[in-house]
């Protein structure tokens, strides 16, 4: 079971959360200005990377808030957890921390 760090409540077991898909996909300010292709891309195209992935989680059985997490989709290591509206972390820097092994990654996550 993953242990997910909620930026409001702290680390909690995965059971308390609901996955929310890829993060940082903002709804266009005025959807009517998008052509079908651009709108389709907003609706359906997701990056699905093998590696670091910024994704949304909701602490549904806790504070009920949405927040963002950077997770390595290979090892499930969580490298960052931050509130909605905060900037996406430097993914290259996180990748370097991940390369340092699970303890380095845990230290990074703790210091957040």
């Amino acid at each position: 079971m993953l242990v997910i760090p909620c930026p409001y409540c702290g680390p909690r077991p995965e059971l308390e959360f609901r996955y929310g898909g890829e993060a940082h996909i903002a709804r266009p300010e005025d959807p009517s200005t998008l052509d079908d292709e651009a709108w389709g891309a907003f609706l359906y195209l997701r990056s699905n990377p093998k590696g670091l992935h910024a994704e949304r989680w909701r602490h549904i059985h806790g504070c009920a808030r949405y927040f963002n997490v950077v997770r390595d989709t290979i090892s499930d290591t969580i490298l960052a957890s931050y509130k909605v509206g905060e900037a996406k972390p430097d993914m290259d820097a996180l990748a370097r921390i991940l390369a340092g092994g699970p303890r380095a990654a845990a230290g990074e996550e703790k210091s957040k």
Partner: peptide, 13 residues
């Protein structure tokens, strides 16, 4: 409720 919360929290804060 989850759908409403999603928009309220993440799009129209």
């Amino acid at each position: 409720l989850a759908h409403m919360e999603d928009y309220l929290q993440t799009e129209w804060a």
